[in-house]
Computed example of a mutant assay.
Amino acid sequence: MELIPANERQTQKSDRSWFTGEVWLETINLAPAPARHRAVHVTFEAGARTAWHSHPLGQTIYVVEGGGVIGTRDALPRVIRAGDSVWLPPGEEHWHGAAPDEKMKHISIQEAESGFVTTWMEHVAEEDYSTLAE
């Protein structure tokens, strides 16, 4: 067993090549091999979001606070709120982040495949971010 006290968890500012706006990442767990589980608590300031990306084994997002937006290549972006969870299948290209006027916090859960977790792509165009599904 490994206990990670709350005051020993690392929080870091996101890499600008993968995010737009202010985003903070707090690692919950990076399980050692042979386990593949990874969980991160992510805080997006209003208007902040990821770039387009995918995960080889999929991703679960659980919104814990505030409101946000999530989009895929084949559908208009949708609003997500505290308490919502989203399953993104392996390889699905998507993005997610805070609403334009509201902070959002979510937990991101995914598995590594051969140590690999995320394929990053281009930043989300402003028109894609601001167009919501009805």
Rank of each mutant, 00 (worst) to 15 (best):
L25F: 15
T43N: 00
E113P: 00
I109P: 01
T119R: 14
I61E: 03
M121V: 04
W24N: 02
R38S: 12
L3N: 08
G97K: 01
M1W: 04
K105G: 03
I80P: 01
E92I: 13
V63Y: 02
T119G: 11
M121H: 15
A112H: 04
G66K: 07
A48E: 01
A82D: 04
P77Q: 06
A6R: 15
H96F: 03
G71S: 07
T20Q: 07
K105Y: 04
L57M: 15
T50N: 06
K105H: 10
S130Q: 09
R9N: 05
S85A: 11
H55D: 00
W52G: 14
A112Y: 04
V124L: 10
L30R: 05
G115L: 05
A82M: 04
D101E: 12
A51I: 00
G67D: 14
Q12L: 08
S17K: 15
H94R: 08
S54K: 00
S85I: 10
V40F: 03
D128C: 03
E22M: 01
A99I: 11
E45H: 06
S17I: 06
N29K: 07
G21S: 07
N7G: 08
V124K: 09
I4M: 03
T131K: 15
A98E: 00
A31W: 11
D74G: 04
A82S: 10
L132Y: 06
G58P: 08
